[in-house]
Design a protein around this nucleic acid. Structure first.
Length: 173
DNA sequence: ACGATGATGAAC
DNA sequence: TTCATCATCGTA
């Protein structure tokens, strides 16, 4: 098993973190039963100026966690039925996060949280063995095996931000 | 193409 | 307090 990623991994540019999470293992421990899945798709949400980032609305109860320590989970509920898993990035005080959009065997942010039983009770917790959810090192991933596209479901974000290629997809072998 | 289904933020 | 919107998904 690889080493567990710690806060220093996430305390970097959000775009870099999103890129480097591809190929890493998302590990879930439920009552001692561990499962791990390769991360295959991510998106970067970068700071107060990014109109697609929830923090562009300002510092609220919902977005507060993004202003905190990198490596914590930002989990929110959308469309009345799906939980989204994000990992906080960059330094304390700068609101940014990476959305985990896909893992091996579960494509789509709502599908993977359902599969791994990830819900609001993990919101604000640090990725760690204690929380039962963490990320471990994986195999080297070449740029040739990665596709970059605009992010999904953010048509409202204005011409500049909606078109930025901040979605990272690991190509299938 | 569309409905499910509830939290969120902004308007009033 | 009401209202439109939403980082989606399953069914059609």
């Amino acid at each position: 098993m690889g080493n567990m990623l710690t806060s220093s991994f996430f305390n970097r540019k959000t775009e870099t973190v999103a890129r480097e999470l591809l190929g890493k293992y998302l590990v879930r421990d439920i009552h001692g039963v561990k499962t791990n899945y390769v991360i295959t798709e991510t998106e970067a949400y970068i700071g107060p100026h990014d109109l697609a980032c929830h923090a562009s609305k300002g510092r609220t109860a919902r977005t507060e966690v993004m202003y905190g320590k990198p490596g914590r989970m930002y989990i929110y509920f959308v469309y009345g039925m799906h939980y989204m898993l994000n990992i906080v990035t960059e330094e304390v005080g700068y609101p940014a996060a990476v959305l985990i959009r896909g893992i091996e065997g579960a494509s789509g942010p709502g599908r993977l949280t359902k599969k791994l039983h990830i819900a609001k009770n993990l919101h604000g917790m640090t990725l760690s063995k204690k929380s039962g959810l963490w990320i471990e090192e994986g195999a080297y991933v070449s740029d040739k095996d990665i596709l970059r596209t605009p992010r999904i479901g953010i048509e409202y974000a204005g011409d500049v931000w909606k078109n930025k290629k901040l979605r990272f997809v690991l190509k299938k072998k």
